[in-house]
Amino acid sequence: MKQPPEKFSIKNWSEDDRPREKLLQKGKAHLSNAELLAILIGSGNREESAVALSKRILASVDNNLNELGKTSIAQLMKFKGIGEAKAISICAGLELGRRRRAEDALELKKVSGSTSAFEILQPVLGELPHEEFWIIYLNNNHKVIQMNQLSKGGITGTLVDVRLMLRRALEVGAVALILAHNHPSGTLKPSQADKNLTAKLTTASAALDIKVLDHLIVTEKAYFSFADEGLL
């Protein structure tokens, strides 16, 4: 009986082509994106190696890791050689990278304006396919005390509980807030609902001597600042 062709497993490659060994010997910085992705998936299919398959996956998103991070498990499984387990590994690896970026952004600590606020918020909100509402809680020096998701919605909107926002502000001793939500559509124009919500949260916060410094609408590469546009 004829044996099926063996998969292109990394362990069968020459030592110079093995990304795991390359990482150990030369360090992670020496690996290409395709080689790092190949480590996650472990093996290719009967026609191509894990690195070749990884290159093809990356090419489908113009070699943009941010775009790859938006790819669903179902979309990844359309590639020959990528089953559910491998697709999950890819998604998990990219999500860890996104969370690391978010934590690194918080090292900025002090918010000096809309640009520094966007640098904190973009890794968290910029690539999401659904809408979320977040609050940055600040002390009197405008340094970040805490950052929390207040609500999570669908593609077109999310609901915000004013009481939860203010309770958390009092718990952490915040004296100022920055409101933020994303627009998965990519539009930066605030809706009337955005404006009404901003006014509602600003008024409620002022009653407790907590100042809303800004409200940012975040997309992948840009933002809209209510403060910069004179809407606060």
Rank of each mutant, 00 (worst) to 15 (best):
residue 1 M to S: 04
residue 2 K to Q: 02
residue 5 P to D: 07
residue 9 S to T: 08
residue 10 I to E: 09
residue 15 E to K: 12
residue 18 R to W: 02
residue 20 R to H: 06
residue 22 K to W: 01
residue 23 L to V: 04
residue 23 L to N: 09
residue 24 L to H: 06
residue 33 N to T: 05
residue 34 A to L: 05
residue 35 E to R: 10
residue 41 I to T: 10
residue 42 G to I: 03
residue 43 S to M: 11
residue 43 S to E: 15
residue 46 R to G: 13
residue 46 R to W: 01
residue 57 I to L: 09
residue 57 I to K: 09
residue 58 L to K: 11
residue 65 L to S: 12
residue 68 L to T: 09
residue 78 K to T: 06
residue 79 F to I: 08
residue 82 I to P: 11
residue 88 I to Q: 15
residue 89 S to Y: 04
residue 91 C to R: 14
residue 99 R to M: 13
residue 103 E to H: 14
residue 104 D to N: 14
residue 106 L to H: 11
residue 107 E to C: 15
residue 117 A to E: 01
residue 118 F to E: 12
residue 120 I to M: 15
residue 120 I to K: 03
residue 121 L to G: 03
residue 125 L to C: 00
residue 133 F to Q: 06
residue 134 W to E: 07
residue 134 W to S: 03
residue 139 N to E: 04
residue 141 N to C: 07
residue 148 N to Q: 04
residue 150 L to Y: 03
residue 153 G to R: 04
residue 154 G to T: 02
residue 156 T to I: 01
residue 161 D to M: 05
residue 164 L to C: 09
residue 166 L to A: 06
residue 170 L to Q: 12
residue 177 L to I: 02
residue 180 A to G: 11
residue 190 P to W: 02
residue 198 T to I: 10
residue 199 A to G: 12
residue 200 K to D: 10
residue 202 T to R: 14
residue 209 D to Q: 09
residue 210 I to K: 02
residue 215 H to D: 08
residue 217 I to W: 00
residue 220 E to I: 03
residue 222 A to I: 01
residue 223 Y to N: 02
residue 227 A to I: 03
